[in-house]
């Protein structure tokens, strides 16, 4: 049994007086696709930022590949980040560079490869996401789905050990959703990556994830493989996974009794 790639122990994180995470323990297995799901505003993206050390936890530790990522200095952290890829919701391509240069950017920053070698590597990665033909386009000329695919090519260009996906499916049409699902799955299997997906698109995630954590109110509500969750999920998780309008999470925001409120009886 290999040790997990990411081990989160006793993590708490506050933003001001708001508690985002409260004593969370979570492991990410190597070579697997792990999904982190939950309603909007539960800090799923925050979790990714904590794993990549863009944010500091209030309490607790996050070990990535055996190293405490928040104990690293700037240089060690940058070394670690070269082995991580992150796919942002908006793609986050550099707007002043074209598609080719965007994908080539990490290579030019971090390696001393010659232009011919860079071209070779970039075209391979662009071909993998099906956008070799778009190499000369500027980011402003691409659709949202294409932006994410270019960003994915950029994220894998340094052959990382792990990719973090921030809401990869939100706001996509069915076709590009399908394309992204296929890409995430094949990338993970063929390149031997570890993938962490943060999302609330239940169907897509269930189809490709090996393991799912459901978080809400700063805690892990449920966890398991998609099949396990199907059977053993709590009432709350069932409501979330099936998208039921009423259940443990009520349709109505907490309020006074309807009749009392309506007729202003005090």
């Amino acid at each position: 049994m290999k040790s997990p790639l990411v081990e989160i122990t006793k993590l708490s994180f506050n933003r001001g007086s708001r508690i985002i995470f409260n004593n969370v323990n979570l492991d990410i297995e190597r070579g697997k696709i792990t999904a982190i799901m939950g309603p909007s505003g539960t800090g799923k993206t925050t979790l990714l930022k904590l794993i990549s050390a863009q944010l500091e936890p209030t309490v607790g530790s996050i070990m990535v590949d055996g190293q405490n990522i928040h104990g690293l200095d700037q240089e060690e952290l940058f070394e670690m980040r070269k082995r991580m890829g992150m796919l942002f919701q908006s793609g986050a391509l550099l707007t002043d560079l074209d598609v080719f240069d965007n994908v080539a950017y990490p290579l030019r920053e971090h390696t001393r490869l010659d232009e011919r070698m860079i071209r070779y590597l970039v075209l391979i990665k662009l071909h993998a996401v099906g956008l070799r033909g778009a190499a000369q386009l500027m980011p402003s000329e691409l659709s949202g789905g294409m932006l994410r695919r270019v960003a994915l090519a950029r994220a894998i260009v340094l052959d990382p050990m792990m990719i973090l996906y921030d809401e990869p499916f939100s706001g996509q049409d069915p076709i590009s959703m399908g394309v992204l699902m296929k890409l995430i799955k094949t990338m993970n299997d063929n390149l031997g990556l570890t993938s962490i997906i943060v999302s609330h698109d239940v169907n897509e995630v269930s189809a490709i994830a090996d393991y799912i954590y459901i978080i809400s109110d700063g805690q892990i509500m449920d966890q398991g493989t998609p099949a396990e969750l199907e059977e053993t999920a709590s009432e709350w998780a069932k409501q979330f996974l099936k998208g039921l309008p009423d259940g443990p999470v009520h349709f109505h925001y907490p309020a006074l009794d309807y009749a009392i409120d309506l007729f202003e009886i005090s």
Partner: peptide, 13 residues
């Protein structure tokens, strides 16, 4: 807004 600063940080730049 388009998270380019975060993206650069994540690319170790």
């Amino acid at each position: 807004t388009t998270e380019q600063f975060s993206a650069l940080e994540m690319m170790a730049v």
